[in-house]
Amino acid sequence: MEALTNMEKANKTFLEEVSKRSGEKLSLCYQCLKCTAGCPTAPNMEFRPNSIIRMIQMGKKQEVLGSSAIWFCVYCQTCGTRCPNEIHIGVLMDALREMAMEEGVHAKEKNIHLFHEAFIQSVRRGGRAHEVTMLMEYILRSRDLMKGSLIPGVKLFLKGKFPLLPSFVKGKGEIKRIFEKCKK
Protein backbone atom coordinates (compact mmCIF):
# COMPACT_ATOMS: atom_id res chain seq x y z
CA MET A 1 0.00 0.00 0.00
CA GLU A 2 1.85 3.01 -1.28
CA ALA A 3 0.88 6.08 0.61
CA LEU A 4 1.59 9.60 -0.45
CA THR A 5 2.30 11.63 2.62
CA ASN A 6 2.14 15.38 2.28
CA MET A 7 3.26 16.99 -0.89
CA GLU A 8 6.90 17.80 -0.40
CA LYS A 9 8.13 21.20 -1.44
CA ALA A 10 10.34 19.72 -4.16
CA ASN A 11 7.37 17.99 -5.67
CA LYS A 12 5.36 21.16 -5.81
CA THR A 13 8.30 22.70 -7.63
CA PHE A 14 8.05 20.01 -10.29
CA LEU A 15 4.55 21.14 -11.28
CA GLU A 16 5.70 24.74 -11.25
CA GLU A 17 8.84 23.96 -13.25
CA VAL A 18 7.04 21.91 -15.88
CA SER A 19 4.29 24.51 -16.15
CA LYS A 20 6.79 27.30 -16.59
CA ARG A 21 8.95 25.42 -19.01
CA SER A 22 6.14 24.19 -21.24
CA GLY A 23 3.97 27.27 -20.85
CA GLU A 24 1.03 24.92 -20.37
CA LYS A 25 -1.60 25.47 -17.68
CA LEU A 26 -1.43 21.98 -16.27
CA SER A 27 -3.53 22.57 -13.18
CA LEU A 28 -6.54 23.20 -15.43
CA CYS A 29 -6.69 19.56 -16.53
CA TYR A 30 -10.20 18.11 -16.11
CA GLN A 31 -8.97 14.54 -16.42
CA CYS A 32 -11.66 14.17 -19.06
CA LEU A 33 -9.26 11.91 -21.01
CA LYS A 34 -10.05 13.48 -24.35
CA CYS A 35 -6.28 13.51 -24.99
CA THR A 36 -5.79 9.84 -24.29
CA ALA A 37 -8.93 8.88 -26.17
CA GLY A 38 -7.50 10.27 -29.42
CA CYS A 39 -3.80 9.52 -28.92
CA PRO A 40 -2.36 7.23 -31.63
CA THR A 41 0.45 5.96 -29.42
CA ALA A 42 -1.31 5.86 -26.02
CA PRO A 43 -1.65 2.06 -26.24
CA ASN A 44 2.15 1.89 -26.11
CA MET A 45 2.56 4.19 -23.14
CA GLU A 46 2.76 2.82 -19.62
CA PHE A 47 1.25 6.09 -18.40
CA ARG A 48 -1.31 7.63 -20.71
CA PRO A 49 -1.20 11.37 -21.51
CA ASN A 50 -3.84 12.26 -18.92
CA SER A 51 -1.98 10.26 -16.28
CA ILE A 52 1.24 12.07 -17.08
CA ILE A 53 -0.51 15.35 -16.27
CA ARG A 54 -1.94 13.97 -13.06
CA MET A 55 1.45 12.60 -12.06
CA ILE A 56 3.02 16.01 -12.63
CA GLN A 57 0.34 17.54 -10.40
CA MET A 58 1.13 14.93 -7.78
CA GLY A 59 4.87 15.62 -8.03
CA LYS A 60 5.90 12.23 -9.43
CA LYS A 61 9.03 13.60 -11.04
CA GLN A 62 11.15 10.48 -11.40
CA GLU A 63 8.30 8.38 -12.72
CA VAL A 64 7.36 11.00 -15.31
CA LEU A 65 10.86 11.78 -16.55
CA GLY A 66 11.76 8.11 -16.61
CA SER A 67 8.64 7.04 -18.48
CA SER A 68 8.40 5.67 -21.98
CA ALA A 69 5.31 7.81 -22.55
CA ILE A 70 7.34 10.96 -23.03
CA TRP A 71 9.27 9.25 -25.86
CA PHE A 72 6.27 7.68 -27.53
CA CYS A 73 4.55 11.01 -28.16
CA VAL A 74 4.80 11.68 -31.92
CA TYR A 75 3.66 15.30 -31.66
CA CYS A 76 0.61 14.71 -33.83
CA GLN A 77 -1.17 17.36 -31.70
CA THR A 78 -4.49 15.58 -31.78
CA CYS A 79 -4.64 16.06 -28.00
CA GLY A 80 -3.69 19.72 -28.09
CA THR A 81 -6.24 20.48 -30.80
CA ARG A 82 -9.08 18.86 -28.90
CA CYS A 83 -8.19 19.62 -25.25
CA PRO A 84 -11.01 21.65 -23.67
CA ASN A 85 -8.46 23.52 -21.58
CA GLU A 86 -6.01 24.15 -24.39
CA ILE A 87 -3.23 22.07 -22.87
CA HIS A 88 -0.76 21.19 -25.63
CA ILE A 89 0.51 17.84 -24.49
CA GLY A 90 2.90 17.67 -27.45
CA VAL A 91 4.62 20.80 -26.19
CA LEU A 92 4.51 19.42 -22.65
CA MET A 93 6.19 16.19 -23.79
CA ASP A 94 8.94 18.20 -25.50
CA ALA A 95 9.60 20.01 -22.24
CA LEU A 96 9.62 16.75 -20.27
CA ARG A 97 12.16 15.13 -22.61
CA GLU A 98 14.41 18.16 -22.32
CA MET A 99 14.14 18.02 -18.55
CA ALA A 100 14.83 14.31 -18.51
CA MET A 101 18.02 14.78 -20.48
CA GLU A 102 19.15 17.71 -18.39
CA GLU A 103 18.56 15.72 -15.23
CA GLY A 104 20.52 12.86 -16.73
CA VAL A 105 17.54 10.54 -16.53
CA HIS A 106 18.17 7.48 -18.64
CA ALA A 107 15.80 7.57 -21.61
CA LYS A 108 13.35 4.73 -21.20
CA GLU A 109 13.06 4.53 -24.98
CA LYS A 110 16.74 4.60 -25.82
CA ASN A 111 16.32 4.01 -29.54
CA ILE A 112 13.83 6.79 -30.06
CA HIS A 113 16.23 9.08 -28.26
CA LEU A 114 19.21 7.91 -30.34
CA PHE A 115 17.27 8.26 -33.56
CA HIS A 116 16.49 11.89 -32.75
CA GLU A 117 20.15 12.41 -31.80
CA ALA A 118 21.34 10.89 -35.06
CA PHE A 119 19.05 13.19 -37.02
CA ILE A 120 20.27 16.26 -35.19
CA GLN A 121 23.89 15.20 -35.72
CA SER A 122 23.28 14.91 -39.42
CA VAL A 123 21.85 18.45 -39.49
CA ARG A 124 24.70 19.74 -37.33
CA ARG A 125 27.25 18.45 -39.82
CA GLY A 126 25.86 19.92 -42.99
CA GLY A 127 22.87 22.07 -42.16
CA ARG A 128 20.61 19.62 -43.93
CA ALA A 129 19.40 16.15 -43.05
CA HIS A 130 20.98 13.25 -44.89
CA GLU A 131 19.15 9.96 -44.58
CA VAL A 132 22.06 7.60 -45.18
CA THR A 133 24.51 9.07 -42.69
CA MET A 134 21.72 9.50 -40.18
CA LEU A 135 20.60 5.88 -40.45
CA MET A 136 24.18 4.63 -40.33
CA GLU A 137 24.85 6.58 -37.18
CA TYR A 138 21.64 5.38 -35.63
CA ILE A 139 22.37 1.74 -36.43
CA LEU A 140 25.90 1.99 -35.13
CA ARG A 141 24.94 3.69 -31.87
CA SER A 142 21.79 1.80 -31.12
CA ARG A 143 22.91 -1.51 -32.55
CA ASP A 144 19.34 -1.71 -33.71
CA LEU A 145 19.44 -3.51 -37.02
CA MET A 146 15.95 -2.15 -37.61
CA LYS A 147 14.61 -5.57 -38.38
CA GLY A 148 11.38 -4.25 -39.80
CA SER A 149 12.94 -1.23 -41.46
CA LEU A 150 15.91 -2.65 -43.22
CA ILE A 151 14.15 -4.09 -46.24
CA PRO A 152 12.02 -1.02 -47.01
CA GLY A 153 15.12 1.12 -46.38
CA VAL A 154 17.07 -0.87 -48.94
CA LYS A 155 14.17 -0.58 -51.37
CA LEU A 156 14.17 3.19 -50.97
CA PHE A 157 17.92 3.19 -51.48
CA LEU A 158 17.59 1.13 -54.63
CA LYS A 159 14.90 3.48 -55.92
CA GLY A 160 17.48 6.24 -55.60
CA LYS A 161 15.45 7.96 -52.92
CA PHE A 162 18.29 7.83 -50.38
CA PRO A 163 21.19 9.53 -52.18
CA LEU A 164 24.65 8.57 -51.01
CA LEU A 165 26.14 12.04 -51.01
CA PRO A 166 24.81 14.60 -48.57
CA SER A 167 23.79 18.09 -49.60
CA PHE A 168 25.50 20.76 -47.46
CA VAL A 169 24.63 24.36 -46.83
CA LYS A 170 27.22 26.96 -47.68
CA GLY A 171 26.85 28.76 -44.41
CA LYS A 172 28.08 25.89 -42.27
CA GLY A 173 29.56 28.46 -39.90
CA GLU A 174 26.14 29.99 -39.29
CA ILE A 175 24.65 26.59 -38.57
CA LYS A 176 27.51 25.79 -36.24
CA ARG A 177 26.97 29.04 -34.37
CA ILE A 178 23.23 28.37 -34.00
CA PHE A 179 23.96 24.90 -32.66
CA GLU A 180 26.50 26.31 -30.22
CA LYS A 181 24.16 28.96 -28.92
CA CYS A 182 21.28 26.52 -28.58
CA LYS A 183 23.44 24.03 -26.71
CA LYS A 184 21.95 22.99 -23.45
Binding site: F119, V123, G127, V169, I175
Partner: peptide, 25 residues
Protein backbone atom coordinates in the same frame (compact mmCIF):
# COMPACT_ATOMS: atom_id res chain seq x y z
CA UNK B 1 19.33 30.97 -50.77
CA UNK B 2 21.29 28.42 -48.84
CA UNK B 3 18.28 27.14 -46.89
CA UNK B 4 18.83 24.69 -44.05
CA UNK B 5 16.89 21.84 -42.45
CA UNK B 6 13.74 22.89 -40.57
CA UNK B 7 14.84 20.73 -37.68
CA UNK B 8 12.05 18.22 -38.05
CA UNK B 9 10.63 16.08 -35.27
CA UNK B 10 13.99 15.22 -33.79
CA UNK B 11 14.97 18.76 -32.95
CA UNK B 12 11.81 19.85 -31.20
CA UNK B 13 11.85 16.55 -29.36
CA UNK B 14 15.17 17.29 -27.75
CA UNK B 15 15.90 20.99 -28.01
CA UNK B 16 13.14 23.57 -28.17
CA UNK B 17 15.38 26.53 -28.80
CA UNK B 18 17.20 24.83 -31.68
CA UNK B 19 13.88 23.75 -33.15
CA UNK B 20 12.88 27.41 -33.30
CA UNK B 21 16.21 28.79 -34.50
CA UNK B 22 16.72 26.44 -37.44
CA UNK B 23 13.44 27.48 -39.13
CA UNK B 24 14.13 31.07 -38.11
CA UNK B 25 17.27 31.09 -40.25
Amino acid sequence: EDWNCCGAAATHSLNRLLSLCLPAR
